[in-house]
Design a binder for these strands. Structure first.
Lengths: 119, 119
DNA sequence: CACCCCTGTAACGCCGAAAGCGACAGGCAG
DNA sequence: CTGCCTGTCGCTTTCGGCGTTACAGGGGTG
């Protein structure tokens, strides 16, 4: 911890899929095998496996299940997934995005809709 | 504003689709017609219309386009969408969720993965 | 040894959602 | 009348999540 001492170990600049967290941190912490966790979640073993492997995304439905399983907020899981999907989308649309003209939106409206500037 | 005076007009308890924000706040603020906005975004007019009508969701790709168009963060748009999808998923899975056993996850791990408790 | 459970992979098929396209009807300004 | 915007319908394609079946291998236990 040389950069910022008492920082919450915030997410890395380049986000890897949320499955890694599940595999390396959560499941061991719950003392659950993949197979057992899948049974508890009420999904196929392969379905969970695909997520751990990063081949499938965490859907809202899965996020809700996970929240029920380990108490970690579904919003958290979706946020992880979003980070991942977003930077993938940005790369693929890179060419298209350049052609989209930026129109200025008044600061009043930005605040009204609850979009606190940078986030 | 009787409940909490200087609150940011936070999102309503029951979230309606993000398209409403686009239609009623953002597009007028940009002085753009639906057709024109669709052209700028590089998508079909119907595609944008479906989102405004709440018949389609804001995908990561669309969120990136919107950010480019009006400067409002893609993360914001996805968060709106998530709120909406999540409460829909919860209702549909309601029965299933009850059967998922809750396993305790140590507080240390929760902090390590960056899931700040309730969110 | 056989038996059982776990894991990883692969190959299907189903289904729903996003997106594009064409077309039509109605509104409204020029 | 002409043009532009809007809402809506129908159709097609594509993609991704999910379940199912199946096979191969590891590892522990009676």
């Amino acid at each position: 911890m040389e950069t910022e001492p008492h920082q919450k170990t915030r997410p890395p600049a380049v986000a890897q899929h949320p499955g890694t967290l599940l595999r390396e941190q959560v499941l061991p912490g719950l003392h659950l095998s993949i197979s057992q966790a899948a049974r508890d979640l009420g999904v196929a073993r392969q379905t969970l496996h695909r997520i751990l492997a990063g081949e499938a995304a965490i859907t809202p439905a899965m996020a809700a299940r996970l929240e029920q399983l380990c108490g970690v907020s579904s919003v958290f899981w979706l946020r992880c997934q979003n980070r991942h999907d977003l930077q993938r989308a940005r790369k693929e649309l890179d060419a298209v995005l350049r052609h989209i003209p930026l129109h200025p939106l008044s600061e009043t409206i930005v605040k009204k809709i609850g979009a606190y500037d940078g986030r």
